[in-house]
């Protein structure tokens, strides 16, 4: 049973993640008054990439890509998706956040091992902006974990049951906005897309990938977006008891993100850090002070 559920979760993640990327392309196109590719374009792209030949720069180049995809698949299993709760009983928020880091480390290692300085610069930028956006995110979550006395993602989803007004989006509004902003960074959306920046550093970490490498990393990107928004939906939008309803919430949040990011220009890399530490961090600390002050027993 667990095996079937795990398979269902992984397939959901991959299929729905790729679907989200397709939606993104379509939405951006419509904002720019283009027609855009069909929504299933991303599936075609991944299938094509896996069928093409590719080049490798060595053992770590291969292993890092496997670590990246494997780490995200592992993370996915700890996140509750509606009623599909494979390992979410032990889905500790801190564990999930750090498991995601394994995946990022794998990708960073692999990219830098290509020997292309554009990749190194891209990874440097990714790590730098991570320093910016992760801090406010974790500070808000610190307040939430303190207030609810749990670090379980499922536990936080369960306390919000019974009506929309119980959602943390309304109970913890400042924190919800801060985490929403941080999610742009985690999923690499504008204005936080300095690591990719095609016009400046030739797609940064992606510069040397081809064929199945690029295919694996597209899958990873789709999964990261799905995991990331799933956490947001569980923690701030009350999770969902219904599988389809959950996916709908994920789609809604993602569409909002895409619409916002498609009209914002890119930050310069240190602007990401100064911005994140000026406003989101400030509000995150205020939010956690409020939560701690309310929650002290």
């Amino acid at each position: 049973m667990k095996i079937l559920e795990s398979a269902a979760v992984i397939i959901t993640g991959i299929v729905f993640g790729l679907f989200l990327l397709g939606v993104q392309r379509k939405l951006v196109a419509r904002v720019q008054r283009r027609y855009g590719p069909p929504i299933w374009q991303q599936f075609i792209d991944v299938a094509k990439l896996f069928s093409k030949s590719s080049i490798s720069h060595g053992f770590v180049f291969d292993m890092g890509v496997m670590m990246a995809l494997g780490g995200t698949i592992a993370t996915l299993l700890f996140v509750p998706i509606g009623k599909l709760q494979v390992l979410s009983m032990s889905g500790d928020f801190i564990v999930v956040v750090y498991l995601m880091a394994v995946a990022s480390l794998g990708m960073a290692m692999s990219a830098v091992n290509s020997g292309n300085p554009n990749a190194s610069i891209g990874v440097m930028r990714a790590l730098t902006q991570m320093f910016g956006y992760e801090l406010p995110y974790l500070m808000v979550m610190m307040g939430m974990m303190f207030a609810y006395r749990t670090s379980s993602i499922l536990g936080m989803a369960q306390v919000q049951q019974g009506g929309i007004l119980n959602w943390n989006l309304f109970r913890v509004p400042i924190g919800a906005i801060v985490v929403f902003i941080s999610m742009f960074g985690i999923s690499g959306k504008k204005p936080f897309d300095t690591p990719i920046a095609p016009a400046e550093i030739a797609s940064g970490p992606m510069v040397e990938y081809s064929g199945k490498f690029l295919g694996s990393l597209t899958l990873m990107h789709a999964l990261v977006i799905f995991v990331d928004i799933s956490i947001f939906v569980n923690v701030f939008l009350g999770g969902a008891s219904n599988y389809w309803f959950f996916l709908l919430k994920v789609l809604a949040v993602f569409s909002l993100m895409v619409l916002i990011s498609s009209v914002i220009p890119r930050f310069r890399v240190e602007q990401v850090v100064t911005f994140s530490w000026k406003w989101p961090l400030f509000f995150a600390v205020i939010q956690s002070v409020i939560l701690v002050a309310m929650g002290v027993r």
Binding site: F50, S51, S53, S54, D62, G211, K212, S216
Partner: peptide, 11 residues
């Protein structure tokens, strides 16, 4: 997934 796909060329 990785090894089922076509073998890559080492450069």
């Amino acid at each position: 997934i990785f090894y089922l796909a076509r073998k890559s060329v080492r450069v």
